[in-house]
Simulated assay, not measured.
Amino acid sequence: MGFFDFLKGKKDKKVVEIYSPLAGRVIPLEEVPDDAFSQKMIGDGCAIDPAPGAIYAPIDGEIDIFETNHAISVETPSGLELIIHFGVDTVKLNKEGLVRIAENGGVKRGAELVKYDLDLIKSKNYSTKTPIIVTNMDVVESIEVVANGDVNVGDLLMKVTLK
């Protein structure tokens, strides 16, 4: 430790960049019509009101696509844990309108994971607002949602600073 190290502060914080897993309009979690998401009981982040298309890996990591294809958990190499939850109550669709493309395991950012039929899901009166949430907030110092308005797949969505 050098004499002036105290001027530099603590070691540089690790910042993890999360890229948009789907195209659409970025909205605050508070606009998701489910208390568990809107009140940030599960974690923090943002949501996307999706355009037609598919869900893609937002970052390199290990994925687990839920049996019903409505949600995907991601663990990054840095230990950050995310969930992409397509819509609200869409677990009840039991895969209808949600087609798994990828297998569970390691993925690279941008890999296609699940295709969705937006019109079919909306026709069944399900909200398609999709939370992208950091679930292990105990390792997070801050989350900055850097995107607003319309986003495309792969646009920078959030910067997460780890403790």
Rank of each mutant, 00 (worst) to 15 (best):
99 V>P: 00
45 G>D: 05
89 D>Q: 07
89 D>Y: 06
39 Q>L: 15
11 K>A: 13
89 D>G: 05
35 D>H: 14
62 E>M: 11
22 L>Q: 07
95 K>W: 00
102 A>K: 12
103 E>S: 15
77 P>V: 04
55 I>T: 01
56 Y>I: 04
20 S>C: 07
53 G>P: 04
8 K>Y: 11
70 H>M: 03
123 S>C: 08
116 Y>D: 01
132 I>S: 00
144 E>P: 02
46 C>R: 03
140 V>P: 15
136 N>V: 02
107 V>A: 07
39 Q>K: 15
114 V>K: 00
78 S>Y: 09
2 G>Y: 11
82 L>D: 04
149 G>Y: 13
135 T>N: 11
125 N>A: 10
73 S>W: 01
8 K>M: 13
36 A>C: 12
3 F>Y: 10
92 K>E: 05
113 L>V: 02
56 Y>H: 13
52 P>D: 13
29 L>Y: 05
129 K>T: 02
131 P>E: 08
6 F>S: 12
92 K>L: 11
132 I>E: 01
158 M>T: 02
88 V>K: 01
29 L>A: 01
118 L>N: 02
71 A>M: 01
38 S>N: 15
138 D>C: 12
73 S>C: 05
141 E>M: 10
92 K>Q: 03
24 G>N: 13
134 V>E: 13
55 I>N: 01
160 V>R: 15
109 R>P: 12
125 N>F: 09
154 G>M: 06
35 D>F: 14
20 S>D: 07
163 K>T: 15
88 V>A: 03
120 L>G: 07
127 S>N: 13
34 D>I: 06
57 A>N: 05
56 Y>V: 04
105 G>S: 09
117 D>F: 06
126 Y>D: 08
56 Y>W: 11
101 I>Y: 04
86 F>D: 00
26 V>E: 06
16 V>A: 09
70 H>N: 04
21 P>W: 02
37 F>G: 00
8 K>V: 05
149 G>V: 08
89 D>V: 11
162 L>R: 14
118 L>S: 00
76 T>R: 02
98 L>P: 00
162 L>G: 09
108 K>N: 14
56 Y>M: 04
50 P>I: 08
95 K>F: 01
75 E>K: 09
100 R>Q: 10
95 K>C: 07
142 S>C: 08
8 K>R: 14
115 K>T: 08
115 K>D: 12
65 I>Q: 00
148 N>E: 14
35 D>T: 10
